[in-house]
Design a protein around this nucleic acid. Structure first.
Lengths: 330, 330
DNA sequence: AAAAAATCTGAAACCAGTTTCATATAAGTT
DNA sequence: AACTTATATGAAACTGGTTTCAGATTTTTT
């Protein structure tokens, strides 16, 4: 292992001078700088990151917590985060919370023990106070999530707008009986979640009232979507359109619809959320709300990198725009 | 920041003794051990990983290189690796090579600079000698990849068997005109890749000869699959069945087949590779070769952890079994 | 020409741990 | 009782860097 002392010896200078060259300090003569650089090259020297980190210099690792990496939404988000981090010379430590409070905590603790220099949280399992208490150990940033009244900066999309756009689109297609699938109805503070507000707003504007039978909560997977369609088929008063919380749930609805000879969009219009590659593979191709996943990842990394710099201002909350992608399922 | 000196002071003992307690050394009296533990708890002390790592003690981080995390095969593999690493108290640094030599190298360099304590390579971009030269800096293990004549241990599935099973299955269904899609035809040493051998072996056993027109190379994506079907439709002598290199390519073939009114499996039998969730979503459901992805991830982490321990033997190459999952597309 | 400021360099302290070495006491053997 | 051996602890050295402090030299200002 080549150390800074070896470089110092070889160049006939002191460790201090070598260190200054490494860190681009001012006040080194060109002559000595070149001597050091030559020696470093000849020896194949690389500074030991553990040593730099120990002295409090090195910041190099971003931790990302996702519920599950196999969920395409999150694998695309991680993709973007990794690419952006690489451009900023940061590495990405990945964690899956598996929707488990303890696992999330054990990851947050890596911030406390200085194993990571900042965290991007893409989902929250523990309560606001707990999460908040970790901000004392290092920068934390939400991506695709947020807590009300929290000072933790967040990068997210305008979910309410997404649901509004989707629901309004269905209404414009002539539908008045619109079902709604979601992951959860309420945010952690008991208030309605953003998406639901968008759904209701669109209904209200059209003078439509909400039918509680058509609201499906806790729907996440393809399997969930299949079961939603089965439930709909059992109803006497069936919705003619459905807004789903994710392309996967939409896919489940459409696959089951196909199996049950329910025609999409004639008998049931379906709209998804995310615009995953999946959306273009389905038959008919899925109309969906596109989230700017890549952009979210970029902004999240950039925000966190800013926070990790000394004396930097905390980035603002950013709300990114969503977009209706009209295909053939509506 | 609470340090080991603070703990020493508080417990009235020396740093050495505290360190011994932390590292479970023998020859510490119960009495002192408890004093130290009490002090650590009272102060909320956590050893600084950078300091431990500097002294060469701490091994905590596994690097994983995948071509792209959004490829479901790799996101499932990473999922398994992360879960297993967590159980072994290791963290996972994730890298995407994007099939880029330089990016792969820059990640391998993290081993040299001690930012990671071992690497799992799930794909190889650089040549054998280059990869090999990095083994001097730390343990490297292949997962889903290997180099012939290499001393680097590998965890992989029996690809040849997979192709053999799939092709044989098609033959048993009465097909004699069987097309073949693959990522690449030759391994890095110029020899046929394993899968191709399995395909040819099955053909040979049935006394069938290979039609070069029906071999499609460099096929990876859904889009590739679509284009394969279009090419097949232009042929005078069309295959009646196709073995594809991945469920995604198979999906592309089937989606395009549906658009072109080619009935699967009546007009064209399709078989995939991987058994991704996608396989069950297609219509008809996709017959495919199942790879034990989770098991591969587990074995890879366990192998690497073994290699990271001092004086440990290098794990053997492990070849995991594949399985034919018969569904409705054949 | 003198004073002040800017440029350049090295010795030593420091970061937070682990390990070696030395030493002391207790326990076991002949 | 004398001699090993096992147990237990602390001081100091060590890991590989960065930073402070002090001093030397050069350049600029008065």
């Amino acid at each position: 292992m080549v150390t800074i002392s070896d470089v110092a010896k070889r160049s006939g200078l002191s460790k201090s001078t070598v260190s200054r060259v490494i860190n681009n300090h001012p006040y080194i003569s060109k002559e000595k700088r070149e001597l050091v650089q030559k020696a470093m090259e000849e020896l194949g020297y690389y500074p030991n990151p553990a040593a730099r980190r120990l002295r409090g210099q090195l910041k190099s690792t971003i931790g990302v917590i996702v519920p599950r990496i196999v969920n395409p939404f999150f694998s695309y988000l991680v993709n973007s985060i990794e690419q952006t981090a690489f451009e900023h010379n940061f590495q990405v430590l990945i964690f899956q919370s598996n929707e488990n409070k303890e696992k999330e905590l054990s990851f947050l603790n890596l911030l406390k023990t200085r194993q990571i220099d900042g965290i991007i949280l893409t989902a929250i399992e523990n309560d606001a106070d707990t999460i908040h208490s970790y901000t004392q150990y290092g920068p934390i940033l939400f991506c695709n999530e947020y807590l009300n009244h929290s000072t933790i900066p967040s990068i997210r999309v305008d979910q309410s707008k997404g649901a509004y756009l989707g629901t309004k689109h269905l209404i414009e297609q002539g539908h008045s009986k619109i079902a709604y699938c979601t992951g959860g109805l309420f945010a952690e503070d008991g208030k309605d979640k953003d998406r639901n507000q968008g759904y209701q707003k669109a209904l209200n504007e059209a003078g439509l009232s909400l039918n509680p039978n058509w609201i499906f909560v806790d729907q996440h997977s393809i399997q969930d979507g299949k079961s939603v369609l089965q439930q709909i088929l059992k109803m006497d008063d069936r919705p003619t359109a459905i807004f789903t919380g994710s392309d996967e749930v939409a896919a489940g609805v459409m696959i089951e619809a196909n199996d049950q000879n329910v025609k999409v969009p004639e008998n049931l219009a379906v709209i998804g959320f995310d615009d995953q590659p999946l959306a273009e593979m389905l038959h008919p191709k899925l109309t969906t709300i596109k989230q700017p996943i890549s952009l979210m990842g970029e902004k999240a990394v950039e925000g966190l990198v800013t926070m990790m710099q000394e004396n930097s201002t905390i980035p603002e909350n950013i709300e990114l725009p969503v977009e209706l992608i009209e295909r053939k399922s509506t």
